[in-house]
């Protein structure tokens, strides 16, 4: 990341907000901070290591300023609205939206997850599965299978409510312990930058296909069982909704298989 970009962000956030880089995507840069945007410090300073996520869409100097402005605004606002709506769905877990400055392309979000034991990295699904695949652990541990089932449920719930994620990968799913110290994990979906409201079967099918490919390319040896668990969780949400659910599930699954056969450009590894 170039220094100019860092300067741009620091200037916007002012020196009162110390930031630490987490990741740089194509479109947005993600930081953590320990400052809340509007609550007084006393209200959360009691909580140990209060942490918040800042997702910042820097302005891109290569494109025309007016294109840049409208895109930044539209996308930030779109993501914020989507998060707001998803938060109201019962049983679905997404990060809590704290603040949104659409004109400057900045989102403040709740910090989720923790560091996995034994230096296995951050508690997203990818690292979690790797942790169980390595070093004497059982890759088909009941905890793993249960977690995957729950991930499937989250996605099922998302689709059942006619929302699509657009970029489902195992690193875009964060696991949070139900209670500190417990071994039950609650999956949270993050990064709705490509998300949308859609009742089209095609979008849902593509969503599932993208996830399947992601699992296949990052956890190839156990992918079959993992995907089965995910799909079981996914189906359970639809099946709980009676006849209509059954019908819709069939449509989604059929389209999913069609997309898979098409295989098109998404046959990429990397």
């Amino acid at each position: 990341m170039s220094e100019q970009l860092v300067a741009q962000i620091s200037e916007y956030l002012t020196p009162n907000v110390p930031i630490q880089l987490v990741s740089q995507g194509a479109e947005a840069v993600v930081f953590t901070t320990n400052v809340h945007p509007y609550l007084p410090k006393e209200s959360y300073s009691g909580v140990e290591d209060a942490k918040f996520i800042i997702k910042y869409r820097p302005s891109k100097s290569y494109r025309h300023p007016s294109i840049d402005k409208s895109l930044t605004k539209r996308r930030t606002l779109g993501e914020a609205r989507l998060l707001g709506k998803l938060h109201q769905i019962e049983g679905l877990h997404v990060p809590h939206l704290i603040a949104c400055d659409a004109y400057n392309g900045c989102l403040w979000l709740e910090f989720l997850g923790e560091n996995l034991p034994n230096g296995m990295g951050f508690s997203n699904l990818k690292n979690f599965l790797w942790m169980y695949a390595k070093g004497g652990n059982d890759p088909y541990d009941p905890i793993v299978l249960e977690t995957l089932y729950k991930v499937g449920q989250e996605i099922g719930l998302l689709h059942w409510n006619d929302y699509c994620h657009g970029d489902l990968t195992s690193s875009n799913i964060i696991l949070v312990r139900e209670k500190p110290g417990s071994d039950t994990w609650v999956p949270h979906l993050i990064d709705f930058g490509l998300g949308s409201i859609s009742n089209m079967v095609e979008d849902k099918g593509v969503d599932l296909y993208v996830l399947e490919r992601a699992i296949l390319s990052t956890h190839s040896s156990y992918a079959e069982k993992y995907n089965e668990c995910l799909m079981n969780g996914f189906s359970s949400v639809y099946e709980n909704n009676g006849k209509l659910g059954q019908k819709k599930l069939k449509e989604v699954i059929n389209r999913f298989q069609e997309v898979r056969l098409r295989g098109r450009k998404r046959s990429m590894i990397g």
């Binding site: 740089q24 194509a26 290569y62 990397g270």
Partner: peptide, 19 residues
Amino acid sequence: QENLFAMLVEITERAMAHV
């Protein structure tokens, strides 16, 4: 031109981040 090329550069950047 501005509009089309901005789109091209954006998807290229996405691919770069991906690989």
